[in-house]
């Protein structure tokens, strides 16, 4: 019996990266979706009632629109996003060789604009950037998350994990205190989730618009009365990367709907 168990454990180690201490095991990982009520779920389930799909529609139009002094559209290089972008968002943040660090999907879009379209960068949380990232991420719906598998990302995943477990802010709370140790409990009646990043960019009813994972993380930091990292800060990218790596194997839901 114990021999068999050892073999299974050994096989798991080969098949997937070992869990870090305190991390939620694969079979216990739950998307924020499972913490929502039936009405909010219904809003996400049907594409014709999911307000995030309005952004996907806009993103599809932008994908084909020429931009910048190079006069090129995303589609001119990448072709049909349904083929070329399938699974891409599930691998982000990804390591950029030229920069020697991970970049988010939003940063990749802006790198593409700078390097291939000679276009100005789109600002954080702008409608166009959210629309493009929603359109790209939508092509990965149902695809299992593999971000962080690239060995070059290891130190950055570790940096993100260190930030995840570090207490911060006037309330002196770490992400892990709520989202690893206390999910399924309630903060003033609202369920505490595992903080799984499976649906970004997502339509948050609180925001009444689509928003990025960075926006959500900054909002959490404000919640514990910490000074939020700036958009695009390496720490925020590392946190995003760690969260995606922590959600390894979970299917993408973009654009999700959350309360």
């Amino acid at each position: 019996m114990s021999v068999a168990r050892t073999i299974i454990a050994a096989m798991l180690l080969v098949a997937a990266p070992a869990l870090l201490a305190g991390e939620i095991p694969q079979d216990a990982r739950h998307s924020g979706y499972s913490f929502m009520g039936p009405d909010t779920r219904a809003m996400q389930d049907d594409d014709t009632s999911n307000p995030g799909m309005l952004f996907v529609l806009d993103g599809e139009a932008l994908w084909k629109t020429r931009s910048g002094s190079a006069g090129r559209a995303c589609a001119d290089c990448h072709g049909d996003a349904r083929e070329s972008m399938k699974g891409v968002a599930a691998r982000y943040p990804a390591f950029d060789k030229a920069l020697g660090r991970p970049v988010t999907l939003d940063q990749r879009i802006n790198l593409c604009r700078a390097n291939h379209q000679q276009a100005t960068p789109l600002s954080h949380e702008s409608r166009d950037l959210l629309a493009l990232s929603a359109f790209v991420a939508h092509q990965s719906r149902g695809v299992a998350i593999t971000a962080g598998d690239d060995p070059q990302l290891k130190p950055f995943v570790e940096q993100g994990r260190a930030l995840f477990v570090q207490r911060q802010g006037q309330l002196n709370l770490a992400c892990t205190n709520c989202h690893d140790d206390n999910y399924d409990k309630h903060l003033a009646g609202a369920p505490v989730t595992q903080g799984q990043p499976t649906g970004y960019p997502l339509y948050r009813l609180e925001w009444q618009t689509l928003g990025s994972l960075e926006r959500r993380l900054r909002s959490c930091m404000s919640g514990v009365r910490a000074q939020a990292f700036d958009y695009g800060a390496p720490e925020l990218v590392a946190l995003e990367l760690y969260l995606m790596a922590r959600a390894r194997g979970m299917p993408m839901e973009s654009p999700a709907v959350r309360p």
């Binding site: 799909m53 309005l54 529609l57 806009d58 139009a61 166009d128």
Partner: peptide, 8 residues
Amino acid sequence: MASALINV
């Protein structure tokens, strides 16, 4: 950009 989703 104004977009609409119509389901008929």
